[in-house]
């Protein structure tokens, strides 16, 4: 990073136009339309101006040109970073190498090289993602691929972007194991021009390729944007109850009494539990009553087949019901079956 000296304050590219630049890179991703503003007239352009006068002193017209004024366009340094994911990335505790996607745009008017860094120890979030790497979208497909994309090493492959050029950058993080449901963790990508950064209006004399000055723009030559992860966990619990009907019209657990077991499966949290299977061994000294297995009041066959449950086929002496994926907070599922006491 070059230290920029601050000389007389210069008005440099106004804020409204910089905002349009941010709009432009959104266009690149087809999200919204915005007017084009690509950092302005290219650095090192020579602006020539000449006036002409026409007059008469009698019959004839005379004309003469003024001398030509020449003004060279300095390199104005600006950069923007915009997090691309539409919503916080849903993660589970202990996940590794979870990807946030950013777009870095050179909103200056000349070619520039940028250094990248991540910050995750930020306030206002619930946990700190553990940064594990930054990748440049080497195959320019907008999607992270560890093989196709290029691991970023500061000072080694700092990306060089032409004026107006944009680059997709991926930030990878591990998720700490202890995060709770709904916790949010923020990771910031910070991009800094290697040409100049600091107070807007600061000047590095003669540093542009053509010998013009490099001037720090309204971005200060550095930009950052926050991306976030949201932890989603789920807990599944089962409550088991039994009702007894004895052969004498009472509810005593005597020989020949029928016990109806009820397993109520509930879930909580914002995540989804995948492949939930409920198993329950038939108690000793009881006998399963064939054809009594039911899920939410719908009968299930006792055999292992297309329906969700079986008795003794998957595991001998055991009721097995496959509930599939269970989203946190979804309605309770109720499994019932009868046994007789021997």
């Amino acid at each position: 990073m070059t230290a920029a000296t601050n000389r007389a304050t210069r008005t440099s590219g106004n804020g409204a136009r910089i905002l349009l630049a941010a709009g432009l890179l959104v266009v690149a991703f087809g999200l919204t339309a915005a007017p084009a503003w690509a950092g302005g007239t290219p650095a090192c352009t020579e602006i020539l101006n000449e006036a002409r006068v026409v007059w008469t002193t009698g019959a004839a017209l005379d004309t003469l040109a003024s001398g030509t004024t020449s003004t060279v366009v300095d390199q104005l340094v600006n950069v923007s970073v915009v997090w691309q994911d539409a919503a916080p990335i849903a993660v589970s505790p202990g996940d590794t190498a979870r990807v946030l996607t950013f777009v870095v745009t050179n909103t200056g008017n000349g070619e520039d090289t940028f250094s990248l860094a991540t910050l995750s120890a930020l306030g206002d979030d619930d946990f700190d993602p553990i940064p594990t790497g930054i990748y440049l979208d080497g195959d320019a497909n907008g999607e992270f691929g560890e093989e196709a994309d290029e691991a970023y090493v500061s000072g080694t492959n700092d990306p060089t972007l032409a004026a107006g050029e944009a680059l997709v950058v991926f930030v990878l993080s591990d998720i700490p194991p202890g995060v709770g449901d709904g916790d949010e963790g923020v990771s910031r990508l910070v991009v800094t021009s290697t040409a100049a950064s600091g107070t807007p209006g600061s000047v590095v004399p003669g540093a542009a390729p053509c010998g013009a000055d490099v001037v720090v723009g309204t971005s200060g030559g550095t930009a950052g944007d926050d991306g976030s992860y949201i932890a989603s966990t789920v807990s599944v619990s089962v409550a088991k109850s039994a009702t007894v009907a004895d052969p004498y019209g009472a509810a005593d657990p005597v020989e020949g009494a029928v016990v109806t077991y009820s397993l109520v499966v509930t879930s909580a949290g914002s995540g989804t539990a995948l492949g939930v299977t409920v198993t329950d061994a038939i108690p000793e000294h009881t006998t399963y009553v064939p054809g009594t297995l039911a899920l939410d009041g719908e009968a299930l066959t006792d055999e292992a087949d297309a329906d969700a449950g079986d008795v003794g086929s998957t595991t001998p002496g055991t009721v097995t019901v496959d509930l599939g994926d269970v989203a946190g907070g979804s309605p309770a599922r109720t499994i019932t079956f009868d046994v007789t006491i021997e």
């Binding site: 210069r10 136009r17 302005g40 007239t41 006036a51 003004t71 060279v72 000055d213």
Partner: peptide, 17 residues
């Protein structure tokens, strides 16, 4: 003298006759 400018800068052109 406007020897160099950046985008957004205002240049005052004066033509003396």
């Amino acid at each position: 003298k406007a020897s160099t400018v950046v985008p957004g800068d205002e240049v005052i052109y004066t033509i003396y006759y």
